[in-house]
């Protein structure tokens, strides 16, 4: 992070908002971020971020600690208000039409919070009701998700008895309820054993195939390198580099890892 003044919030030249080569630029984005800025007193957390994420696209957000990734995610999920700029999810402004924008977003936070005295199923039922699903649809969706994440045997246990991995999988189930067009996963592979991590990665691929747009914030760079259709590097509150799939493949072909790329292109505190 810096302690400078926020910059002008016009789109930063030379940084593509979205991959132009595959024709996606003309489609409606699931997530549109324009000129996003946020400061905490003298500290500039986000400084003019522009980003579009299209259906079926997995965008990885990377950057040093304090680069502005979490602030950006908090703003786009309605947990923080931006000073300037606009965020639209599924065409809905997160400030002007928050309920529609939140219904269009499935969010898995980094620090999990569940109701400890509800069972996994009850928690999902509550979230389904909040997301506006009718009882029949909700039950079918909950059964399917629990099965998909192999949580059915634990569905009737209180979440306080869940391991961290189970809690994270339940949180992902909750995020997927209602079939939101945008999924935001903040360090969602943390705390998962290899099998569970593989399950989550499989679900990510399935969701991409279904047309869900996914934003994945992670420090596990090799996973991002393999899964993402685009990687966005944020540093000091700004988008400093965008690598599309072709660029990621080209990077890999030269024997350069995303980790090396990350280190070479970030100067902030890590």
């Amino acid at each position: 992070m810096t302690t400078s003044k926020p910059a002008d919030h016009a789109p930063q030249s030379g940084l593509p908002l979205a991959p132009a080569s595959n024709g996606q630029a003309r489609r409606t984005p699931a997530l549109e971020i324009r000129g996003l800025a946020k400061r905490f007193r003298a500290t500039v957390a986000v400084d003019g971020v522009d980003l579009d994420v299209f259906p079926g696209e997995l965008v990885g957000l990377i950057g040093p600690n304090g680069a502005g990734k979490s602030t950006t995610v908090k703003i786009l999920t309605g947990q923080l208000l931006a000073d300037r700029g606009q965020v639209r999810v599924g065409g809905h402004d997160v400030v002007g039409d928050p309920l529609a924008a939140k219904r269009a977003t499935g969010y898995v936070p980094q620090e999990l919070e569940l109701y400890p005295f509800l069972t996994g199923r009850e928690l999902l039922e509550l979230v389904a009701t909040i997301r506006g699903l009718d009882a029949t649809t909700a039950q079918a969706a909950i059964d399917s998700l629990l099965e998909r994440f192999r949580l059915t045997p634990a569905a009737h246990r209180m979440t306080r008895e869940y391991s961290e991995g189970m809690a994270r999988k339940l949180s992902i189930c909750a995020a997927l309820l209602g079939n939101p067009p945008l999924l935001v996963l903040d360090e969602s592979l943390n705390g998962l054993d290899p099998r569970a991590a593989a399950e989550v990665k499989a679900v990510i691929r399935e969701e991409l195939a279904r047309g869900t747009a996914i934003v994945l914030v992670s420090h596990i760079l090799d996973v991002l390198e393999r899964l993402c259709t685009r990687v966005v590097l944020i540093d000091q509150g700004r988008v400093v580099k965008v690598l599309d799939r072709a660029a990621l493949d080209a990077l890999s072909a030269t024997g350069t890892t995303l980790e090396t790329f990350f280190i070479e292109n970030t100067g902030g505190a890590s």
């Binding site: 009701t129 279904r210 047309g211």
Partner: peptide
């Protein structure tokens, strides 16, 4: 793009039910 379901008016009841369950279990 995928469609999003409309909200239902039962959120209030769902909260009450969940709170009651949590309280009795606590």
């Amino acid at each position: 793009m995928k469609t999003v379901p409309a909200p239902t008016p039962s959120v209030r009841r769902a909260f009450l039910r969940a709170r009651w369950r949590m309280l009795t279990r606590r």
